[in-house]
């Protein structure tokens, strides 16, 4: 086994699928010779040639249309949106076209597209690079939305995403790209989409989260453990569709929960998780399910990020509030 960062694991997943299926194509802005602005496609063009891994003109909407057309003619496109804030430029292709292809054709056509894109706060990017827009995607019928939190998960989930016959939005948190390494098998493996992963077991409270907030939540759980509170940390991995079973099983065990997301509070993934818990397990609850989120402003100017993003302290505090309810 090799030690890999998340970005290396992502490259490895694409290399695996490029090898595995000659219809897989990887494309986007700067993904060719340059290997992507984060080096996610490093070496892939050299290894698989310009026909398989290629640069596109600088036009996100065109990239989306290209992916749809290539999907219709038998290819399995893996398109990159250089930063997810640029998705607004390609929203029609994503939400109004590929997400509806199977439905609009009554099952005759489909769009086996994977949309890879970096996002996430904490790296002080210019505006519209870091926004957490997964809530918009999750509310779009016909899309799956995947957000890995570790190198191991990223590889297994990305391979599953590429093999999926319907469109998958695969969001890569920039802060996690190179923040740590872990053992990642060189051989292929998959992690099913729509399944959560329990990153830490505990009996006192469930912390339900995803993306970079998994790590903040694990740190909060360590702090809580010092005070004798055993928190269970659930990494959703796929935010649409949700793994209801894992969430409900955990809440029925701990009887308390908080939901943590980096995104703003209103109408997002965490609100949906709370609603599902209310509908399915309210009688198991000893306290209201609370949320830790960013405030409902526009994503902050770079120098204000630290103050704006939820921290492990916010999470620990909110967990204690629920415990002491």
């Amino acid at each position: 086994m090799a030690q890999m960062t998340m970005i290396q694991a992502i490259t490895d997943a694409m290399r695996n699928e490029l090898k595995n299926n000659e219809d897989v194509l990887v494309f986007g802005e700067d993904v060719g010779q340059n290997g992507g602005v984060f080096r996610a496609t490093e070496g892939l063009q050299k290894e698989f040639g310009e026909d398989r891994v290629f640069d596109t003109p600088l036009a996100e909407s065109g990239i989306g249309g290209l992916a749809i057309g290539l999907g219709l003619t038998g290819f399995r496109p893996v398109m990159e949106i250089q930063f997810f804030g640029f998705v607004f430029e390609v929203f029609d292709s994503v939400a109004a076209q590929m997400a509806r292809m199977r439905y609009r054709s009554g099952g005759v056509y489909h769009s086996p597209v994977t949309i890879r894109s970096p996002f996430g706060g904490g790296v002080k990017t210019p505006e519209l690079h870091a926004d957490s827009l997964e809530g918009l995607m999750a509310q779009t019928p016909g899309l799956k939305v995947v957000i890995p939190s570790t190198p191991y998960d990223a590889k297994g989930l990305l391979i599953s995403a590429i093999r999926d016959n319907d469109p998958v939005v695969f969001l890569e948190h920039m802060k996690l790209y190179r923040s740590f390494r872990e053992e990642v098998p060189e051989e292929e493996y998959t992690i099913p989409l729509g399944k959560a992963d329990i990153k830490r077991e505990g009996k006192d409270i469930s912390i339900i989260t995803y993306g970079a907030m998994v790590h903040s939540s694990l740190k909060a759980a360590e702090e809580l453990a010092k005070e004798g509170i055993e928190a269970e940390v659930i990494d959703l991995q796929t935010v649409s569709p949700l793994d209801i079973e894992t969430i409900i099983d955990s809440v029925e065990k701990t009887n308390r929960a908080i939901v943590v997301q980096e995104a703003q509070k209103q109408a997002g993934v965490s609100a949906h998780v709370v609603a599902e818990i209310n509908e399915r397990a309210i009688l198991s609850l000893e306290a209201p399910v609370l949320r830790v989120t960013a405030p409902d402003t526009i994503f902050p100017f770079a120098s204000a990020e630290d103050a704006w993003l939820p921290s492990y302290k916010d999470i620990a505090e909110k967990a204690k509030q629920v415990i002491n309810f």
Binding site: G62, L66, I68, G69, L72, T73
Partner: peptide, 14 residues
């Protein structure tokens, strides 16, 4: 119109 560019590219590649 953009999808047409994609389908045409796919037809050529196939």
């Amino acid at each position: 119109i953009i999808q047409n560019a994609g389908v045409a590219m796919g037809l050529k590649r196939k």
